[in-house]
Design a protein around this nucleic acid. Structure first.
Length: 706
DNA sequence: GGCATGTGTATTTTT
DNA sequence: TACACATGCC
């Protein structure tokens, strides 16, 4: 037997060395799932499966990279580099670039993110005149959310609105119209949103010849985090394995935390029914956490209304109970967490082996300020992202246009950067460039599914844009020049195309064009320009412009660290992360902020029992990241933001998921208070007051009854 | 039609 | 707080 299989426990080995056929691996938190999957890949290659016939679908690119690195180490080969690894979306992109023509996609299609999708929705809403008439019409981001859930959950619009967006139900017709136009326009523009990547992959599989070709391409399919996949993804897997039974899915129903993305735990529960003949392997030995942490985590899950059976056990002896620290307010929470982090570092746990986790991106705002003040280095995952900043979006829109000149969302954004050009002029230009019919809402390119013929380049299109407002003339010329330079078309028309610039040089060239615009339009231009230098830095790793744009859209830099590049080896830094982004990670010490009702569970998610259960699983995920030490911080007071410096505040309750004293499970948690809370308690009415009062009442009664 | 200014508001999680 | 939307001036 191969040496790496010896390092696995019997269950893990059974999974890694499974023969053919479908397998469901139920892998509880910390049960060595990554290791098992990595060994599985190594095993398959050892047994003669060509690496490029293995498909490894993961939740993030980081997860795929880690597994393949580990597989390479186990198998002692670098051939794992040829394994197709990545997210569903990234793999869809890769397949569609190659085979997309079969279903009407040109290979230069561009991928838009949620914000771009929202902008397109907005354009359509205006074109259809739906923005004006109704005051309560859903916002653009809501429209995107509705559309996304509609296709990912495969649920009828009416039912969807009733269930999740009851206040939008009256606008059903308008929403329907917008979604139809949205679909049509994307197709005419050869633009795909995130959901389209999945929809088109599915469509590709249903296409006559190509479908079988793709399904036959892979001998083994492995899927990680299966509890967080949705119906479309399950359908894709069904079709991917026609004639090929070798599918392994790995997941944990107790860690399902993406229902807002239409993920459904049914996928994992129904797997045996959907894939007849499936074997089931359960990994239940936890190698991560000490017993008290595991016991507390299990207790949190035990209260779930709907729960699934699993018995996690650990052989890690000793360890201390998780500690709940009651704080006076958020400020005290901040100092308390800093204190404990530094204490732990003194005790030998480097910052790198500690993490601070929270429900929402902004929950760490105050902490970030304090860490900066104290010179404690950190990186933050999740929350607001680099690519959501206006200036980065501007630059990416420019890049997309070079790639796909039909992209109207890009044009609409870029044209309005020029002085004197607003929405109306931009729309006029689109007509002049032949991208859009004069009648509002109609795109000029075919939308019937036929593969469009090649479109003129962005530079050629700019040459067609009729009359230009005087104020915009020079900037417009500058844009033309910049675009021409990037495409290698700046020579006079008719001259053969020269080399187009590399991704990094392209950004460098566009930055020169963009520099005055940033100064004119935005605050702190210097900071923003520095961001674009960072973007250029990232681009140096790429040879292909298309690859760069797609990567940055599908896998945006999610932390400050990603932007700064690999840190120096001897550097030590703390991790801050949303709980969602902490999936699959582990640290020696974990600090959970805002363990208060209203934060976890979020006030936005207490409407129904399933929502509350998901919040509970979220807390469970956070807790099970910890190996040795786990701390909850619970601020008693939350101040309301209002004008003036009022100190109006309300009192919070400890999160309902942590058991309180009447329950025996409360004993699984240690309780402490911050200094201000202790001072308060000491200053409060002394304990003798109650007996004294009682005595007075008793005396009175005694007197009356006498 | 563009743009600056003012007012109101809603506020999670991510590919 | 930051963003979306309304208003009023050039």
């Amino acid at each position: 037997m191969a040496a790496y299989l010896d390092e696995l426990n019997p269950d893990q080995r059974q999974a890694a060395a499974h023969a053919d056929g479908p397998v469901l691996v139920i892998a509880g938190a910390g049960t060595g799932k990554t290791k098992t999957l990595a060994c599985r890949v190594a095993y398959l290659i050892d047994k003669g499966t060509p690496p490029d016939r293995i498909l490894l679908l993961t939740f993030t690119r980081r997860a795929a990279a880690e597994m393949l690195t580990r597989a390479a180490r186990s198998a002692g080969t670098s051939a794992t580099g040829k394994v197709w690894g990545g997210t569903f979306h990234a793999i869809a992109n890769r397949l569609l670039r190659t085979y997309g023509r079969a279903i009407g996609l040109v290979p230069e299609f561009t991928v838009i993110d949620q914000a771009d999708a929202a902008d397109l929705m907005n354009l359509i809403r205006n074109d259809l005149g739906l923005a004006k008439t109704n005051r309560r019409f859903p916002r653009k981001s809501t429209l995107v959310a509705i559309y996304s859930r509609l296709v990912n959950a495969r649920i009828k619009l009416s039912a969807l609105l009733e269930q999740h967006y009851p206040w939008c139900h009256d606008e059903r017709d308008g929403i329907k119209q917008i979604i139809e136009a949205y679909t049509q326009r994307k197709r005419a523009q050869q633009v795909l949103d995130y959901d389209d990547l999945l929809l088109y992959w599915r469509a590709l599989l249903a296409a006559p010849v190509v479908g079988d070709q793709i399904a036959d391409r892979f001998a083994h399919i492995l899927v990680d985090e299966y509890q967080d996949t949705n119906i479309i993804q399950a359908e894709i897997l069904q079709q991917m394995r026609c004639g090929n039974p070798n599918l392994m899915v790995v997941g944990d129903d107790a860690q399902s935390i993406y229902s807002f993305r239409a993920a459904t735990v049914r996928n994992i529960l129904d797997f045996p029914a959907q894939f007849p003949g499936a074997s089931i392997v359960k990994l239940q030995q936890n190698y991560r956490s000490v017993q008290p942490i595991l016991a507390a985590s299990n207790a949190v899950m035990a209260q779930a209304v709907e729960r699934y059976t699993k018995d996690l056990f650990t052989q890690r002896p000793g360890g201390q109970k998780p500690t709940v620290i009651t704080c006076f307010d958020e400020a005290e929470q901040t100092t308390e967490v800093c204190t404990r982090i530094l204490e732990q570092r003194e005790a030998g746990i480097a910052l790198r082996r500690q993490a601070v986790l929270f429900r929402a991106g902004h929950h760490s705002d105050m902490l970030e300020v304090e860490l900066t003040r104290r010179n404690i280095p950190f990186v933050k995952y999740g929350g607001l992202k680099f690519v959501e900043a206006a200036h980065v979006k501007d630059m990416l829109a420019l890049l997309r246009l070079l790639e796909n000149p039909r992209d109207q969302i890009g044009w609409f954004r870029v044209l309005q950067l020029l002085p004197g050009i607003g929405p109306a002029s931009a729309a006029r230009f689109l007509v002049a460039m032949g991208l859009r019919d004069p009648a509002p809402g109609q795109d000029a390119l075919p939308s019937d599914g036929a593969v469009p013929v090649s479109a003129p380049s962005a530079a050629a299109l700019l040459a067609r844009a009729g009359d230009i407002p005087p104020a915009a003339r020079d900037p417009f010329a500058a844009l033309r020049q910049a675009v021409g330079d990037c495409l290698g078309e700046s020579g006079l028309a008719g001259g053969g195309p020269q080399e187009s610039l590399s991704p990094a040089s392209t950004i460098e060239r566009l930055r020169r064009f963009y520099d005055p615009i940033v100064h004119r339009l935005y605050e702190n231009p210097v900071v923003r320009l520095r961001d674009l230098e960072q973007l250029e830095q990232i681009a140096t790793r790429y040879k292909s412009r298309s690859q760069f744009i797609t990567d940055i859209t599908l896998d945006p830099p999610s932390s400050t660290q990603d932007l700064a590049g690999p840190p120096l080896l001897d550097e030590d830094w703390l991790t801050l992360s949303t709980i969602h982004s902490a999936k699959g990670m582990e640290w020696d010490a974990v600090h959970i902020l805002h363990a208060a009702d209203g934060m976890i569970p979020s006030d936005m998610a207490t409407g129904s029992q399933p929502e509350i259960d998901e919040e509970r699983r979220l807390l469970y995920v956070a807790m099970t990241r910890a190996k040795d030490f786990l701390y909850f911080y619970f601020p008693l007071r939350y101040y309301h933001r209002s004008r003036g410096q009022t100190d109006r505040h309300s009192y919070a309750q400890l999160t309902r998921f942590i058991p309180s004293p009447p329950s025996p499970a409360a004993a699984l948690f240690e309780r402490q208070s911050g200094p201000q809370v202790r001072a308060d308690e000491a200053a409060a009415a002394p304990d003798c007051a109650a007996p004294t009062a009682a005595k007075a009442v008793d005396d009175l009664l005694k007197d009356l009854l006498a």
